[in-house]
Amino acid sequence: MELEEMQAAWSQMSQDLEKQKQLTDEIILKMTQQKYTSQWNKIFTAEKIGGVICYIGLVVLLANFKIFDTIALQVSAILCMLILAILPIVSLKTIRGMKQVNVTKMNYKETMETYAKGKKNFVNFQKLNVGISFLFMILTVPVSAKLFNDENLFETLDPKLGIAVPFMLVFFGLLIWFVTRCYKKVLRNSETILKEIEE
């Protein structure tokens, strides 16, 4: 159908709709009370809880820092603390960026741009997050062994650990592959929107 034909059909429909008014005051006011909980709100809450847990971990490590008596343990503990301190802030900031679309104030272009950029940042952060989590998991092993068992794994290297590491590597390799695969489409869609705006 060409544009002119569309315009004719659209105009006829608009005229008919004018005659078919069906909204009442009651229906309209009820519609203003809707309560949607989007998936993003759920993620935001989960991240907030995660953030609290991270900071509890950070406080525990800080309070017990003196028990890390070798350079290797101290470096591991400091890296763990840095991850626990920074990751939740970046994570919450990224999600907040996603929620910044204000449909009542922005125009169509701004809405699309803000949405696509927010989503892109979120996906990139999630990818980085997987890598950092892997590092954190490795660092946690000697730190928690010292913290809860007073054992320095750097000195008493257990052969079992040598078996566990390749397993961990395979597990994380699969996880990274899966996460990248999941987000590929989302990232592509965001890129398409941004490209579309620029065209």
Partner: peptide, 24 residues
């Protein structure tokens, strides 16, 4: 238009539609 765009882009929503049963 902004609402329509974000609506189709957002993840699957779970929510309650209030009072639109009478709206055909």
């Amino acid at each position: 238009l902004n609402t329509a765009f974000t609506f189709i882009k957002k993840e699957k929503r779970k929510g309650t539609s209030v009072g639109i049963d009478n709206l055909h």
